[in-house]
Amino acid sequence: MDGEGQTKKFMFVNRKVPYGTVYALESLEVVLISAAFDQDVSLAFVDDGVYQLKNGQSTDGIGMKNFSPTYKALGDYDINKLYVEKESLEERGLSLDDLMELTYEDEDDDWAEKTSIILVSREELAEVMDQQDVLISS
C-alpha cells in the first residue's frame, strides 16, 4: 500500500530532439518542479533524446532560448542520475565526449564533484525502467 509522504521513484524519459518541438523544454520544467516534492528523480535520454545533452548548442541564429545550460543546474536540485543509452549515442555517431559535462557535489563524500551521467546499454536501461514507480515519457 502506498502511504502519504512516501518517496517514489520517478523517471523522466526523453526521446526528442530539442527546439523542433516543445517536449524537451517542457519535460525539463516538470523535472525542476518535481524536485520540490522530495522524490527519487532520475532522467533517461534515449533515441533522439540524447541530442538534448549535446555540447556546444548555440541558438542565436534561431531566436530561441538555449536551455541546455539548465541541465547543469540539476545537480543543485539533487537530481544526479542521468541515464544515457549507449546504443542511441552510437547510432548517431556520438560518444560521451560530445555531451555536456554534468556533475553534482556528493554530500556524503565531502562534496566531491562527480559525474551525473550514467552510460547504460538498452538492456540495462530496461532493467532500471522496470524498477520505477512512475515513468513520464516525452
Partner: peptide, 10 residues
C-alpha cells in the same frame, strides 16, 4: 545552418 548550430553541430 542556424538549426544545426542550435543542436550543437557545425
Amino acid at each position: 545552418t542556424p538549426d544545426l548550430n542550435a543542436r550543437g553541430f557545425t
